[in-house]
Design a protein around this nucleic acid. Structure first.
Lengths: 338, 338
DNA sequence: CCGGATCGTCGAAGCGGTTCAACACGCTAG
DNA sequence: CTAGCGTGTTGAACCGCTTCGACGATCCGG
């Protein structure tokens, strides 16, 4: 591999000049720049990342900590990841991937100066990683909200608003009894905050819209979905509107409703909270509140980069939910008959 | 951040001694080692990754190039990734994540010495990335097979054997007319080799088992699956055994079969080629040939690490397929009646 | 015609590790 | 008693790049 000295020699300039051509931090005359660039081209020179990191205290790498295994729905994770990686490239950064459970990885990458910044997904209410990154010298952005987001940078969908929006949509369509089929019990147990925020919004809006709301936790398996649907329909048989906030369970919920002879979009209105493509790949196109995972990932990177440049203060950003009506929801019992 | 010199000073030794304590490359007496370790502990010292990379020409990072977007099924990708990341940690390496389409990323990370080695997923027959990594100084392992794997390291499921196994299973169960519902057309168009290897094995075994085999490409959408099923059943109405090699389409294929009044596991035997958990989360537990994505990822890392240590020659490893009988396959028309 | 900016370039000092040759020391063998 | 050896430790060179202070040249106004 050619070094910067090789380039300098073949261009007939000093190494610092080459460095300045590369970084643009000092003015270089056009002819000199041209000679240097020709030399770089000719030698196929690539700056050594380690040397650069050592000298400049910048790695141009950000760490992304993602849950590679359980619970959270896989397509959603991938979209977050895709968003983060592509946006990072826009800032000329690469992404180092850490798994959620590798808590010591935080120390490793921050303490070892392997990365300039961190993005962490799937934050729990009382997340053990939060104090660690708060102590790190690298800025961090959390995807999801911990108990106390004070002084931290966070992004997420505004699930509380999403809950309100879903209920408002159903209530306005004339549904008087609605339900949530939500996250698996273990997610609730971990107090992943989105589930709780969702429920809060749901209940708020139910109260002010004057509708009843029943909540069922739901395993992502076919059996779990069946159990939840059955439980719901036996304890709240008047339910005509369901919000499903569980991508994994969604197809199985729909299957169970069908098995019980309920036609979604006619007998039962269903609003899904999930990524657009998941909503579109069900047996019928689902009315849904989009979970813009890729966008959230991108925003996370934008925020972390902002903090890396200027000394932006930390902030938490909640993205407004958007509901798209498709074929799975329809007017309910109390609807004005046009 | 404390440096190695700080540690040396507080331990009362030279920096090289600290370095040797850390690396174990020279014998250090117990008392000295203890003093150094205490100092490290006390100062919370972490070696600077960049400095280390510069001096040792080793980054302890491997690059993983994964398709973060289309085509290939998302859960499978995640399992590959999870396998790679966890196994990399066993070798004290971290993972830098590149997207498939970021071809220039290869140059960047190899030329810039950002990584010690590479793992690339989703290799196509005539993959443009192959010549690039072949020219790189870092060893590379491909997940999937290019046209000519000569001189390259590759891992994959032995799809040809999987095809044979699937047909043999169905043929032995008494099915005389079988079919493949396979990858989306665009995957075939890219000549991703697994699809072709699968078909080859399928046809080979069909010939020697004396059964007919019909092949349908299949989009992963509900509509695509319906089209494929309908086409199959109209052009080959005698089909009683289907191999589905398309995780995304699998649920929709099953749904369409049900819509047409065919009971899977009775009227129609279906063998899925997919990860175990996908097979288990369908409407009924599927007889399947496991696609051990996580294992493949791990093997890829093992191979790449082996090449990093000794000067192992490159090799290609095909994992033997395993078929697990569950509820979606049953004896067919020609079965001996017990 | 001179003093002082301005512009472009350079030299050298780090950045924080690894590693090699060398050395001090206490032993054993001759 | 000395030559020779192994063990444990050290000093210093080096890895490839960034960046700061300085310097020569050119240009301006006075």
């Amino acid at each position: 591999m050619a070094t910067i000295d090789d380039v300098a020699r073949t261009a007939g300039v000093s190494t610092s000049t080459v460095s300045y051509v590369l970084s643009g931090k000092r003015p270089i005359s056009a002819p000199t720049r041209a000679r240097v660039e020709r030399a770089i081209e000719k030698l196929g020179y690539r700056p050594h990342a380690g040397a650069r990191a050592l000298a400049s205290a910048r790695t141009n790498v950000i760490a992304l900590m993602a849950p590679l295994r359980v619970g959270v729905s896989v397509p959603v994770i991938m979209q977050f990841v895709a968003g983060v990686v592509t946006r990072a490239r826009d800032f000329d950064h690469d992404v180092l991937l850490l798994t959620q459970d590798d808590v010591s990885g935080l120390d490793r990458v921050t303490g070892g100066s392997m990365v300039d910044a961190l993005v962490m997904m799937d934050i729990e209410a009382d997340d053990p990683r939060v104090p660690l990154v708060a102590a790190a010298k690298q800025p961090t952005v959390l995807i999801g909200l911990p108990q106390d987001p004070e002084g931290l940078s966070c992004v997420d969908l505004d699930f509380e608003a999403a809950g309100r929006l879903a209920v408002r949509h159903l209530a306005q369509a004339g549904h008087a009894d609605v339900a949530l089929i939500g996250s698996p019990p273990e997610v609730l147990r971990r107090h992943t905050s989105y589930a709780e925020r969702m429920m809060r919004g749901l209940r708020d809006q139910a109260r002010s819209s004057g509708v009843t709301v029943k909540v069922e936790a739901c395993d992502s398996s076919p059996a779990g979905a069946a159990t939840a649907v059955d439980a719901l329909l036996s304890t709240a048989p008047d339910t005509t509107g369901i919000v499903v906030h569980n991508e994994g369970a969604l197809p199985h919920v729909l299957a169970r409703l069908a098995e019980r002879g309920l036609v979604v979009g006619t007998d039962m209105s269903v609003v899904a909270v999930c990524p657009r493509d998941v909503a579109l790949s069900q047996r019928i196109p689902m009315t849904s509140i989009d979970l813009p995972a890729e966008d959230i990932g991108k925003v996370a990177v934008d925020m972390v980069m902002a903090r890396l440049e200027g000394e932006q203060p930390s902030e938490t950003r909640l993205l407004a939910p958007v509901l798209t009506e498709r074929d799975s929801s329809a007017p309910g019992p109390a609807a004005d008959v046009g």
